[in-house]
Design a protein around this nucleic acid. Structure first.
Length: 775
DNA sequence: TCGGTTCAGAGTATT
DNA sequence: TCTGAACCGA
């Protein structure tokens, strides 16, 4: 049985899987079979009787990763993994808090605020305190609160060093009080509460320490201080942490992730076993050479080199284009060629640094009639109509939920205006009760007669729904709520309400699917057995409360914009964990990728490089890198240098399709190096390794005839804009002295340059007027 | 309460 | 340039 588990693993993987019950750090390179090692380890531990299913805790960051792990486990073992503690940090903390809600100081059916809800709660707090949003910007306050919580700090722990800060701390305290009153917790609170629970309750802590003999952590490099602290509390004397991560793929420092946790873990736990997984099963050799060479430019690394048993494959293609529009057009051509060669559109991933870049790409793909799908839009449970329906459900579950009350008291419209709601809030504040309670007790001094009647009707609607839905199965209850609340009627009246109606219907389906999943997980005999020592709390949660928690913790799929076989477009961040046969990384320009905001500190640059590394290692077979000489950004045409990352790739693994200028700062504009003849246009698809780049001619001239007129026109326009300055050029000005060009825009007489002068700061100068000496 | 206008800001993102 | 949010008048 165990030999079968180990078959097909390479020596390092097998070593990791079969490590003894001690702490271990697994450095798992991209495409090295990380998930396989994690799940096989769990299966192996159980198969050898080293641990029972309930002795395992496996934690990931995303629901997707958790699902993947459960799926693989179900193929590796006979145990139903649903009852095991496998999930996201937030999911597991939620589970723990439900079980021990009393010790955690929470009501049993506490609700979870997502980011939107949290922001609304913060705004409500500011309003209640009459604090203008200019004095405390809600977003800033929310992120301050989250930042504190992620460092493990309650208001009392935060050092208030100035008045501004003191106000934030004060508001943080007010926010926590408001949440407590309403019985809601935000995402960070789930973790912090759970941390405090373990910290303060020795018996509980020891119970879990003894129970979870093996703690397995996925993507360890992404843990923040609080998550690491939580793991430390769970790690008692007799258990083992199996941490899997890749410092080279740490790209979330900006949201609190701290790679240093990897080293801290080795040190604090006196980790004896560090296993490196370096054999890559995804990409061909040239692609890996690029990845290795690039990441070698980072200083702070644990050190790792990817290799493959497969061949070198095709060289990585680099293409320079005159503008973002041309870049998009070039990609369209390549995708067409790929499809002509028999691959699917969905084999293609197009990556970019920032979402704004998707526009020109979408435009080109759309015009070319190529189906594409952009990741990153609104997700199912984040849609307004769904949030509305959920707000009704939340009020039914817990009438103290003022956030939900305010969201739907007057939606659909029932004549309860802002004014009445404000009065009601004042009343509730004065009485120290919830809005719903305030409606019930309001007589005089509250909202005026007519409004009060409507408010009472609303309150009656909610209690009627509560009573009636209690008798129904969850999906039927959801259907009743969306109908009787008037949501369905409202959206059927709306011109563009059809999609929203469909989404509401989908919510009913989601509830049905949820009920089915849950009953699988909790009612099968094997998992009940696994849960036998579990306090009953989790089983007493109503299906509705459980569904609401599910809706908050799992926002659902990103919307798909087009059919099944579609080109996949996303940011490099979103691509982490995915792979494509063919990958385009676009916009490889200084200021974009690496992003300008990251350039000021060395750490920022290294993170950008890791992001590039993540992008490169997504490709299985072919990798296309492109950059544009000019790009429209924020309404200005920017003239960017090509990305330094391109210089960091090994020549032998790369094929430049466009002539490679020797200096990144040299002007390829002043001396266009393409021949201007339509040489080589009979080639089926340039972009694949083929004839000498020098003989290619400018790739744009390979466009179909009907497009060529416009192409030439565009080229002429671009040539018109020649001037000797580039971003980065050093110049001298009579009055301001020496400076550096940081941006260029306009052309001809309108051309302007933004220049940073030492003592005189940053200035915009018209090139036709200013006397500039280029240094 | 809606619709239009104005204004600022513009990175990456999971739960 | 474009977008989302805030604000004001009907």
């Amino acid at each position: 049985m165990t030999t079968q588990l180990l078959s097909g693993l390479n020596p390092q993987q097998a070593a990791a899987v079969t490590l003894g019950p001690e702490h271990a750090l697994i450095l798992a390179g991209a495409g090295s079979g990380k998930t396989r090692v994690l799940t096989t380890r769990i299966a192996w531990l159980m198969a050898n009787g080293r641990v029972s299913p309930m002795g395992i805790l496996a934690v990931t960051f995303t629901n997707k990763a958790a699902r993947e792990m459960l799926l693989r486990l179900s193929t590796l073992t006979a145990v139903n993994p649903k009852g095991m503690w496998v999930g996201t940090f937030h999911g597991l903390c939620n589970r723990m808090l439900r079980l021990h809600h009393r010790d955690a100081g929470l009501v049993p059916s506490f609700q979870i605020l997502d980011t939107q809800d949290q922001l609304a709660a913060v705004k409500r707090l500011l309003k209640a305190r009459n604090i203008g949003e200019d004095r405390a910007p809600p977003r800033q306050l929310a992120s301050f609160i989250n930042g504190c919580k992620e460092k493990g700090q309650r208001p009392a722990d935060v050092e208030a060093f100035d008045d501004y800060n003191r106000r934030f701390v004060e508001l943080y305290a007010g926010y926590d009080a408001q949440c407590q009153r309403e019985g809601v917790v935000d995402f960070a609170e789930l973790l912090l509460r759970s941390h405090e629970l373990l910290e303060r309750h020795q018996i509980l802590r020891e119970h879990y320490q003894q129970r979870f003999r093996h703690i397995l952590v996925d993507e360890f490099q992404d843990t923040n201080a609080l998550q690491y602290g939580w793991l430390k509390l769970l790690a008692g004397a007799g258990n083992a942490i199996f941490a899997v991560g890749d410092d080279d793929q740490s790209i979330y420092a900006f949201r609190g992730a701290d790679v240093a946790n990897m080293l801290a873990f080795e040190r604090e736990f006196a980790v004896q076993h560090r296993v490196k997984l370096e054999q890559n099963y995804r990409s061909s050799g040239h692609i890996l050479d690029c990845a290795n060479a690039l990441i070698a430019h980072n200083d702070r690394r644990l050190g790792k080199d990817l290799w493959t048993e497969e061949g070198a494959g095709e060289r990585v293609v680099v293409q320079e284009l005159p503008s973002d529009a041309f870049e998009a057009q070039w990609i369209v051509e390549q995708v067409r060629a790929i499809v002509r060669d028999g691959d699917r559109r969905s084999d293609v991933g197009i990556l970019y640094r920032s979402n704004a870049q998707s526009r020109s790409l979408e435009h080109a793909l759309f015009s070319a009639g190529i189906a594409y799908r952009v990741y990153g839009g609104l997700r199912f449970f984040e849609r307004a109509e769904i949030k509305h329906a959920l707000a009704y459900l939340r009020l039914i579950e817990r009438e103290e939920d003022d956030g939900a009350f305010l969201r739907v008291a007057n939606f659909p419209l029932r004549g309860i205006g802002t004014r009445s709601l404000e009065q009601l809030q004042d009343l509730a504040r004065a009485k120290g009760c919830s809005l719903m309670e305030a409606v019930r007790t309001a007589s005089e001094g509250g909202p005026g007669g007519a409004s009060l009647g409507r408010l009472r009707q609303f309150a009656q609607l909610i209690s009627r729904l509560r009573q009636e839905s209690a008798l129904l199965a969850l999906p039927d209850a959801v259907r009743k709520v969306i109908n009787d609340s008037g949501l369905v009627a409202h959206y059927s009246m709306e011109r563009e309400g059809q999609d929203r109606l469909e989404n509401l219907e989908e919510l009913v389906n989601a509830a049905a699917a949820f009920v089915q999943e849950e009953s699988f997980g909790l009612d099968t005999p094997s998992t009940l057995a696994a849960l036998e020592t579990e306090p009953v709390g989790v089983l007493t949660l109503t299906p509705l409360a459980a569904f609401l928690a599910h809706a908050s913790l799992e926002a659902g799929e990103h919307q798909a914009l087009s059919g099944d076989d579609a080109v996949q477009m996303m940011t490099a961040h979103a691509a982490k964990g995915l792979e494509f046969r063919h990958v385009f990384i676009t916009g490889l320009e200084e200021g974009l990728f690496p992003h300008e905001n990251a350039l000021s500190q060395e750490e920022g640059l290294e993170e950008e490089r890791r992001l590039m590394y993540v992008g490169i290692t997504r490709a299985r077979q072919r990798l296309y890198l492109s950059f544009a000489q000019t790009r429209m950004l924020h309404g200005h045409t920017r003239y960017n240098l090509r990305s330094r990352f391109l210089e960091e790739l090994p020549d032998a693994a790369v094929r430049w399709l466009s002539p490679r200028t020797s200096q990144r700062s040299s002007s390829s504009w002043a001396q266009p190096q393409w021949s201007g003849h339509n040489a080589g246009s009979d080639r089926q698809h340039q972009g694949h390794p083929g004839p000498e780049p020098a003989r290619l001619g400018h790739p744009l001239l390979h466009q179909p005839l009907e497009d060529q007129a416009c192409t030439v026109q565009l080229l002429v326009e671009h040539l018109d804009s020649i001037h000797p300055l580039r971003v980065g050029s050093r110049v001298r000005h009579g009055r301001f002295g020496e400076g550096v060009v940081i941006e260029l825009e306009g052309r001809g007489r309108d051309a302007r340059a933004q220049i940073r002068f030492g003592a005189h700061g940053i200035k915009w100068l018209a090139l036709s007027v200013a006397r500039l000496e280029v240094l």
